[in-house]
Amino acid sequence: MAEAAKGRGARSNASGRFEPETVEAFDDGWTGDDVEAAPLRTTLTPEHARTIIAKNTSPDIGFDRSINPYKGCEHGCIYCYARPSHAWMGLSPGLDFESRLFFKPEAARLLERELAKPRYVCKRIHIGGNTDPYQPVERELNSTRSILEVMQRFHHPFSIITKSVLIARDVDILGPMGRAGLASACVSITTLDRGLARAMEPRASTPAKRLEAVSRLADAGCPVTVGFAPVIPGLNDHELESVLEAASKAGATSAMYVTLRLPLEIKDLFREWLADARPERAARVMSLIRQTRGGKDYDADWSQRMKGTGPVAELIAARFKAAVKRYGLDAPRVPLDETRFRVPADAKVQGDLFDLPSSEMEEGIIV
Score class of each variant (00 low, 15 high):
residue 146 S to W: 13
residue 286 M to S: 06
residue 321 K to L: 10
residue 31 T to C: 15
residue 267 K to D: 13
residue 44 L to P: 04
residue 258 V to K: 07
residue 65 R to T: 07
residue 245 E to I: 02
residue 82 A to E: 05
residue 130 N to R: 13
residue 277 A to Q: 11
residue 129 G to W: 09
residue 154 F to R: 07
residue 291 Q to P: 11
residue 220 A to R: 04
residue 203 R to W: 05
residue 79 Y to R: 06
residue 98 E to N: 00
residue 1 M to D: 05
residue 188 S to Q: 09
residue 330 D to S: 06
residue 25 A to M: 15
residue 293 R to W: 07
residue 342 R to H: 13
residue 307 K to Y: 15
residue 200 M to F: 14
residue 97 F to Q: 05
residue 148 L to K: 06
residue 277 A to S: 14
residue 5 A to Y: 14
residue 305 R to L: 11
residue 189 I to H: 01
residue 115 L to Q: 01
residue 83 R to C: 01
residue 335 P to C: 06
residue 298 Y to T: 01
residue 28 D to V: 11
residue 322 A to R: 11
residue 70 Y to L: 08
residue 171 V to H: 00
residue 83 R to L: 00
residue 263 P to D: 02
residue 155 H to Y: 08
residue 151 M to C: 02
residue 49 A to P: 00
residue 213 A to G: 04
residue 267 K to C: 10
residue 10 A to V: 00
residue 174 L to D: 08
residue 56 N to L: 15
residue 10 A to S: 13
residue 269 L to M: 06
residue 247 A to M: 01
residue 102 F to P: 07
residue 160 I to W: 07
residue 361 M to A: 03
residue 264 L to C: 00
residue 114 E to L: 06
residue 337 D to L: 01
residue 319 R to H: 01
residue 78 I to N: 03
residue 91 L to H: 02
residue 29 G to L: 12
residue 339 T to L: 07
residue 84 P to H: 00
residue 121 V to S: 09
residue 75 H to Q: 09
residue 286 M to Y: 03
residue 253 T to V: 15
residue 178 G to Y: 09
residue 182 L to S: 02
residue 365 I to Q: 10
residue 261 R to C: 04
residue 242 S to R: 15
residue 42 T to M: 08
residue 62 G to E: 14
residue 193 D to S: 04
residue 38 A to S: 14
residue 169 R to Q: 09
residue 327 Y to Q: 01
residue 96 D to C: 06
residue 280 E to W: 11
residue 220 A to V: 10
residue 286 M to Q: 07
residue 77 C to L: 12
residue 263 P to W: 04
residue 276 D to C: 12
residue 232 I to A: 04
residue 333 R to W: 15
residue 247 A to K: 00
residue 280 E to P: 03
residue 39 P to C: 08
